[in-house]
Amino acid sequence: MEETNEINNHENKRRTVKKSKLNWKRAAPLYLMLVPGVIFCIVFQYIPMAGLIIAFKDFKPWLGFAESPWVGLKHFEFLFSYSGNLQVIYNTVIISVLKLVLGLIVPIAFALLLNEIRKMVFKRTIQTMVYLPYFLSWVILGGILLDMLSPEGGLVNNFLGFFGIDPIFFLGSNTWFRPTVIISDIWKEFGFSTIVYLATLAGINPSLYEAAEMDGATRKKQTWHITLPCMMPIIVVMGILSLGNILNAGFDQIFNLYNPLVYETGDIIDTFVYRVGLVKGDFGFATAMGMFKSVIGFIFIVIAYRLAYKFADYKIF
C-alpha cells in the first residue's frame, strides 16, 4: 500500500514537472509577444511619468535631467500662492464641472425623447445627423466657430441682427466665453453620448411596458416608473466615471477658441502649461502645474472606479 502511494507520489511529481515544462514551452511565445508592447509602454508612458521629477528642479534643457539643480517645492509654493495660478485652476474646475453636469443631463433627455419616436427611418436619420459633430476635430470646428461667431458678418450675429440684437463678440468677451465653450462642447458631444443610453433603452424588457399599459399607466408614468429606474445603473456609472475628468476642461477646444482677451475666464491648466512651458520655456513650473493636474485626476479616477464598482459592479476589464 505504502509502496504504491510512494510510486504514485513520484509519478505525480514527475507529471507536474513535465506539465510545467510543457506549460512554459507553450507560454514562452506569449510572453515574447508582450515584450515590444512593454518596452513601448515603458519608454513612452512610464519614462514621462518619471520625468515629472523636473517639477522639483530648475530644469534647463542645456543642463539635462541630472545636472539641473533641485529646488524642492519652490514651484508648488508659487503655484498655490499666486492668485493668477489659482484663477487658472478655478477656470478649469468651473468649465469642466458645468460640462460634466450638462454632458450627463442633455444626452439622457435626448435619448428619452428619441425613444418616443416609433418611425424607425426618422429615428435613424436623426441619429446620423447628431453623431456627426463628434467626429470632427476642434481645429475644424474651431475654424467654423471663429467664422460663425465673428462679430463682423458671422452667421450667428447676422441672425441675432434680425431681432435687433447688437453683435456680440462671443469669443472675445469674458462674459460670453465660458457659456460659448460649454454650449459648443455639449453641441459636439451630446449626440454621441446618447449611444450608451439608447443601447440601454433598447434592452428594457417590453413586457414591463405591456403590464403597465394593462394597469392603465400613462406614458409619463411609464417613463417615470419603468424607463428611468431601468436606466439608473448606467446613469450612475456614466456620472461617476465622468468624475475622472474633473480637471479636463478640454484643451483642444479651448486652445482653438481662446485668445488673450479671455485668458481671465478661459485659461485652463492645460493651455497654461503649454504657454508657460513650451512658449516661455519655464519647464519646471509648467511641469509642477501639469503634475498637480495628473495627481488630482488620478485620485478622482481611482475613487470613481471604486464607486462604480461598488454601486454598479462596473469593471474595466
Binding site: N23, R26, A27, L30, Y31, L34, G37, V38, C41, V43, F44, Q45, Y46, I47, P48, M49, A50, G51, L52, I54, F59, P61, D270, V273, Y274, G277, L278, F283, A286, T287, G290, M291, K293, S294, G297, F298, I301, V302, I316, F317
Partner: peptide, 29 residues
C-alpha cells in the same frame, strides 16, 4: 494558469489610463 502574472501585466498597461506625465515630460522625451 497559461500566462502567469496576467492581471499584473494588464494593470501595467491600464495604469497609463489613470496617470500620465503630461505634455512637458513628453516633449522633453
Amino acid at each position: 494558469d497559461i500566462i502567469k502574472g496576467r492581471a499584473m501585466i494588464t494593470w501595467f498597461f491600464v495604469f497609463t489610463m489613470l496617470f500620465s506625465g503630461g505634455i512637458i515630460p513628453n516633449y522633453i522625451l
